[in-house]
Amino acid sequence: MITTECLEEKARQIRKNVLEMVYRAKTGHTGSSLSNTDILTTLYYSIMNVDPKNPELENRDRFILSKGHAVESYYAILGDKGFFPKEELETFSQFGSRLIGHPNNKVPGVEMNTGALGHGLSISVGMALAGKKDQKSYRVFTLMGDGEQAEGSIWEAAMAAAHYQLDNLVGIIDRNKLQISGTTDFVMGLEPLEEKWKAFGWDVVSVDGHDIEKMRQIFEELPITKGKPILVMCYTTKGKGISYMENVPHWHHGVPTAEEYKQALCELTNIEGCNHE
């Protein structure tokens, strides 16, 4: 089994890939991808049953990135695992590239095009229900943003998942408390968010979304209750890993300057004397 230390190092490398992709393309959702990197690293390198050599494996676990704008870390992991040549990451958001700014199911490993917020959970409910009806053992994981919790379709899907007793469905919320136009409290108050999901019939577990060891323990122990879908509330920091990006709304989709890029690489490669001014 891969160690927690190796997973943490892998997450650091993925963050570096994200930074390189955004800086090269001069576009992207930097802070959003950095906040979900540890979650995706835990799932793809330790939890999910997926095979890069056989992306259409019938009984594979399914993953849907509902917060599709945070695609850079997703592509970086798929490339690193060998779903497509890693060199293709250099084409991100360039003309003619299949690695566009939201998940594209022409890319091996991507189950569904996403990006219109509020749709990913509904898609995942359908996949999980199909698995139940076909008596398959695969699980469906969907990563949502906290900003999209204001979408009514999220709650329709949540209600359906509980009704159909989809204990093969794992919803995950990247709870960084920031969205494009400010804090989630300012845009649309969400609390008490955990209690709302419980009221809709879900088991709810909360965790530090940057504590890979604790996340792995939680995902390994699922499902909690037979016949109940699971919601894992991951409390995260937007822009995690780069000091001047952390908890700054601008970095929802900010692109670093040459000096900022140099500073970020310095921090991600653990070089001493990286005091940003």
Rank of each mutant, 00 (worst) to 15 (best):
R62A: 03
L169P: 00
M233V: 09
G28T: 12
N105M: 13
N104T: 05
T183L: 02
Y44F: 15
D174M: 06
Y164K: 02
I154K: 03
E56S: 14
R139E: 02
T27Q: 14
E90K: 15
E194Y: 03
Y138Q: 05
Y261W: 14
T183I: 03
L166Y: 00
V22S: 12
P256R: 12
K198A: 08
P249F: 07
N247P: 07
K228V: 06
G118I: 02
V232S: 01
T3S: 15
L99K: 09
L65S: 03
Q165W: 02
K26P: 13
R139Q: 05
E260R: 11
E111F: 01
Y261C: 13
G254N: 09
E246N: 09
N105S: 13
T257G: 14
H252E: 08
E90R: 14
I100M: 10
I180G: 08
Y44N: 10
P108V: 12
R12M: 07
Y164P: 01
G101C: 06
K196H: 10
S181F: 10
F141N: 03
R12F: 04
E9M: 12
M233P: 02
L265K: 13
G31C: 08
V255S: 12
D208P: 05
K86H: 12
D51T: 07
E260I: 11
S153A: 11
R139P: 01
I242V: 14
S73E: 04
S137K: 15
Y45F: 15
D203R: 11
S124A: 03
D211M: 06
P55L: 09
D208Y: 04
Y75P: 11
L143Y: 02
M144A: 05
I180W: 05
G145T: 00
S46I: 10
P256V: 12
I2D: 11
V50I: 10
I242S: 07
I212Y: 02
P103L: 03
I224L: 15
T184H: 02
G120C: 02
P223D: 13
F83A: 05
Q217A: 13
L193S: 06
C234V: 05
L222D: 02
K53Q: 15
G239V: 07
S137Q: 14
R139F: 04
H276T: 11
V71G: 00
K177G: 01
I212F: 06
G152N: 10
N17I: 06
K136W: 06
R24M: 14
Q165T: 04
M245S: 08
